[in-house]
């Protein structure tokens, strides 16, 4: 059974179509890499999947235990967060906010969940530390732990390595791949990086206002779209 099925999806802003003809299906445990140039509609599709932007046409269907609120979203870092006074524990715990419903305070179960994911991301010893004093890589692990608190099913990552150095980026990709392989968490990643995420991805979606390609990574590397986008990198 498909976890996400997008059928003939299109999005418009003020009557201008920014993305159209999007058709793809993801099963549990898939790893989808969304590629395309700036302004090709990637971020709009992400907003659509999260239920923050209604499609102008077409449908998004969730299945296999997934629903829009149960997506673990890792948005890009905002400039506000760079000097925000918050402890690591406070940030990770806020990942449970989507589980609230009408509740007001975090339950013991949610606090345990936060502790569990901090442990998994190797940041338990940072729990009391101030978020703004951490390195870029540590901050990203904190935000990943927060996203995990929101989901057991699907991680949606928007350029997770923006602003990180290559070594830290590689560690983060390895962590994401580990979550995908060992816990069967579906991964949807928007990325400019033509290196590491490509080796882990099972599927590729290439957008340029309309959908240029959707399929497995192997097929993408052999396709026209893949060859032109990756240039000479595909045989590295």
């Amino acid at each position: 059974m498909a976890q996400i099925q997008c059928t003939d999806l299109s999005f418009t802003y003020d009557g201008v179509t920014v993305a159209e003809g999007i058709n793809f299906t993801l099963k549990k445990g898939d790893y989808l890499c969304i590629v395309g140039e700036n302004g090709s509609g990637k971020s709009t599709l992400v907003r659509g999947l999260l239920g923050l932007k209604a499609p102008a046409a077409g449908t998004i269907t969730f299945g296999d235990g997934l629903f829009a609120r149960g997506i673990g979203y890792l948005p890009q870092q905002t400039h506000l967060q760079k000097d925000f006074p918050a402890s690591v524990r406070e940030v990770v715990l806020s990942g449970c906010i989507g589980r609230f419903g009408n509740g007001l305070f975090y339950t013991k179960k949610e606090k345990q969940l936060a502790a569990y994911h901090m442990e998994k991301m190797g940041i338990s010893d940072l729990a009391g530390r101030c978020y703004r004093e951490l390195s870029g890589g540590q901050q990203q692990r904190v935000r990943l732990a927060r996203a995990l608190c929101a989901t057991g099913e699907l991680l949606l990552l928007d350029e997770p390595t923006a602003g990180l150095d290559p070594i830290v980026s590689r560690e983060l990709y390895a962590m994401i791949e580990h979550l995908n392989k060992t816990e069967g968490i579906t991964v949807v990643m928007v990325s400019h990086d033509t290196g590491a995420p490509f080796y882990a991805a099972s599927h590729v979606l290439h957008l340029k206002h309309s959908q240029l390609f959707f399929g497995t990574r192997e097929d993408y590397l052999a396709s026209e779209a893949g060859k032109s986008f990756l240039g000479g990198l595909s045989d590295v």
């Binding site: 999260l50 948005p75 967060q81 806020s94 989507g98």
Partner: peptide
């Protein structure tokens, strides 16, 4: 006091809070 956790969430990361249904 009642909305403390939601206020934190909205203040720290609007987009994430929106995605969580706030």
């Amino acid at each position: 006091i009642l909305f403390y956790n939601r206020i934190f969430s909205v203040t720290f990361d609007e987009t994430f809070a929106r995605a969580g249904g706030i």
